[in-house]
């Protein structure tokens, strides 16, 4: 499948979910963000990017070491 078509399908899917978010709002919201329709669209997108960028940054600057790190005497 060519990439343009794939991204079009993806866009259509996101749009459909966005509309569905308005049709089925949360019936028992506990917190203010649960009252926002289609909140999870933003949360999923920003959350995944935040996790990737933060973890990569942390790994690059601190956590990831050479694979022989513990074998040095």
């Amino acid at each position: 499948m060519n990439p343009t078509r794939l991204s079009r399908i993806m866009m259509a899917l996101i749009l459909a979910l966005f509309v569905l978010g308005f049709i089925f709002p949360n019936p028992h919201p506990h917190f203010w963000w649960q009252k926002i329709p289609a909140f999870d669209i933003f949360f999923g997108f920003l959350g995944s990017i935040l996790l990737i960028v933060f973890a990569k940054w942390l790994g690059h600057n601190w956590l990831l070491k050479d694979k022989d790190y513990y074998n040095h005497d």
Binding site: M10, G21, I23, F24, A38
Partner: peptide, 22 residues
């Protein structure tokens, strides 16, 4: 419930979008 399903799918599909970029 419809809301649970829609919200889950929103979360998952947009995570896929984030993954695809990176």
């Amino acid at each position: 419930t419809p809301n649970h399903i829609v919200a889950s799918l929103q979360l998952l599909v947009l995570t896929l979008a984030g993954f695809w970029i990176y």
